[in-house]
Amino acid sequence: MKNETIRIGQTTIDFLLEAADTNGSLAMFEFGVPAGAKVPLPHSHEHYDETIYGLKGVITFTVEGKTIDIAAGETCFIPRGAIHGFNNIKQEDAKALAVITPALIGPNFFIECAEIVNVDGPPNVEKLKLVMAKYGLVPAIPKM
């Protein structure tokens, strides 16, 4: 699976380390977010932490309501249970490194999401929520 780019809409994911590579201690992937790209629903993780390291451009994360711009060389720690999401609101494409500890998520999650998102027309949000739940992600659906 390594070296195979996964595309979910406009976002790309390239796994560098999976659970099998690290005895389950961490997973690591690069993700690219073009300027103005549609991005995943805000969510939280029940059983793992996520650390983001900026590689190129600026990705704007919102963690528990606080906005954090992550540029190249900057970091952000997202503890389990924290509601977060991200956008690229700048004019330049962005790329970041994500480290998941422990390695409870891997390429299969993103492949399953891609199968739902990469269709003609709007994605089936209910199917997406089921895949998220299967991998320990809790969508944070805004109250209407």
Rank of each mutant, 00 (worst) to 15 (best):
L137S: 08
A82F: 10
D69F: 02
T51H: 02
C113Q: 13
P34R: 00
L130C: 02
F109G: 00
L130G: 05
V99E: 06
L55T: 13
I100Q: 13
G136V: 08
P139Q: 01
N3D: 14
P123A: 07
K134L: 01
I89Q: 08
N124Q: 09
K134S: 01
D21P: 09
A20V: 03
E74G: 02
A94D: 05
H47G: 03
N124I: 07
T75A: 15
G32Q: 09
I70N: 09
P102K: 04
I59E: 15
V63A: 10
I68L: 03
E115Q: 15
I141L: 12
R80I: 02
M28P: 07
E126T: 02
A114E: 01
L17W: 04
V63G: 06
G81R: 05
V39R: 10
I89A: 09
S44T: 12
T51C: 06
N3Y: 14
E18C: 04
A94Q: 05
E64A: 01
F15R: 01
E112P: 03
Y48P: 04
P107S: 14
K90R: 14
V125R: 00
H43E: 12
I111H: 12
V99Q: 06
I111R: 15
E30W: 13
K129F: 10
K127R: 11
I78K: 06
E74A: 04
T5P: 02
K134V: 00
P123N: 00
I83N: 00
D69W: 04
S44K: 03
N23L: 05
T67I: 09
D120Q: 14
L97T: 07
G36K: 09
L104E: 14
E64T: 03
A140Q: 14
F86I: 13
Y48I: 03
P40Q: 00
Y48F: 15
G65R: 06
A94Y: 03
I52Q: 13
G136I: 11
A35P: 03
G73T: 12
A37L: 10
K90H: 13
S25L: 15
K38E: 10
E115R: 13
T12E: 09
G81A: 07
F61R: 07
R80H: 15
T75Q: 14
A114M: 11
P122I: 00
A72K: 13
K129H: 05
P40L: 03
E92D: 12
T60C: 02
I70L: 14
E115T: 01
I141S: 04
Y48R: 12
P102N: 08
P102I: 04
V63R: 03
I89P: 00
A96Y: 05
T12Y: 02
L97P: 05
I13F: 15
N87L: 05
I59T: 15
P40D: 06
G136D: 07
N118G: 11
V39H: 05
K56H: 08
F31A: 14
E50D: 08
T67K: 13
G32H: 05
I52L: 15
A114T: 01
F31N: 08
M132L: 07
A72I: 03
I83L: 05
T101A: 15
I141A: 10
V138K: 08
L128S: 01
D120N: 14
L55M: 14
C113W: 10
